[in-house]
């Protein structure tokens, strides 16, 4: 195993970088889309149950199936990977953002409007900052999930550590099969832990001291 890692050191690092890059970019995209959707949905009360249903049902779609559906449309490579990872990452963020935004007391919003804040000011300076800790929790859940989904996305020849796992699986019984699978899996776990720690830090620095738990 040590020999295995030694021989492929540069490749492993490069793939880890690719994997993280895919996850982080998809996560950013997912967050922007999900928060925007949540703002839309919470402004129109009738849409809220729809959003909750979508995020619940969406998570039950097997990622392989989604990938299979996407491949004929967008072809193989990075694009389907980003789409699939973003899709799954968006769901927990959407759900938490809806909950977080709904959790902002109506009386507080009214008090802010009563001071003369415009609708946009209330959104940026009151609703989003107050919902932020809940949204960040959603982002952390998404990040963990995205790490796993990104591994599966490697099936579509997307970048990252997932390729190692697939190589391992296709070569079962071969000389390095176990090493491939193990290094791929452990690598993803380590990356996931690092990313989570970074997100915890980010959450601390971006949440007002006045509402920090």
């Amino acid at each position: 195993m040590i020999e295995f890692i030694d021989a492929r050191w540069a490749d492993i690092l490069f793939r880890s970088y690719q994997h993280s890059s895919l996850v982080i970019q998809s996560l950013l995209l997912a967050t922007v889309i999900a928060v925007a959707l949540a703002v839309l949905v919470t402004s129109c009360r009738r849409l809220t149950p729809v959003a909750n249903a979508v995020s619940a049902v969406g998570l039950t779609i097997p990622s392989f199936a989604l990938l299979g559906l996407l491949l004929p449309i967008v072809g193989i490579g990075t694009v389907p990977s980003v789409i699939v990872v973003s899709f799954y990452a968006a769901l927990p963020v959407l759900r938490n953002a809806v909950v977080g935004l709904q959790g902002v007391e109506a009386s507080l919003i009214e008090s802010a409007r009563g001071q003369g804040m415009s609708g946009a000011a209330v959104l940026w300076r009151v609703r989003l900052p107050l919902a932020w800790p809940v949204i960040m929790t959603g982002i952390r859940v998404s990040a963990q999930m995205a790490m796993g989904v990104a591994a599966i996305a490697a099936y579509a020849l997307g970048p990252g550590l997932g390729t190692y796992i697939f190589t391992g699986l296709t070569q079962v019984g071969g000389a390095n099969a176990l090493n491939y699978a193990l290094v791929g899996t452990l690598g993803i776990i380590i990356l996931a832990l690092i990313l989570d720690a970074l997100l915890v830090l980010l959450s601390r620095f971006t949440t007002s001291k006045g509402i920090r738990a």
Binding site: L108, S111, M117, S118, S208, G210
Partner: peptide
């Protein structure tokens, strides 16, 4: 309405302070 409210003080029960602001 938004401009108008800036020229009218508004005080509610409990203060209605924004918890994330000092």
């Amino acid at each position: 309405a938004t401009q108008l409210r800036r020229s009218i003080g508004y005080v509610i029960q409990g203060g209605g302070l924004l918890p994330h602001m000092s």
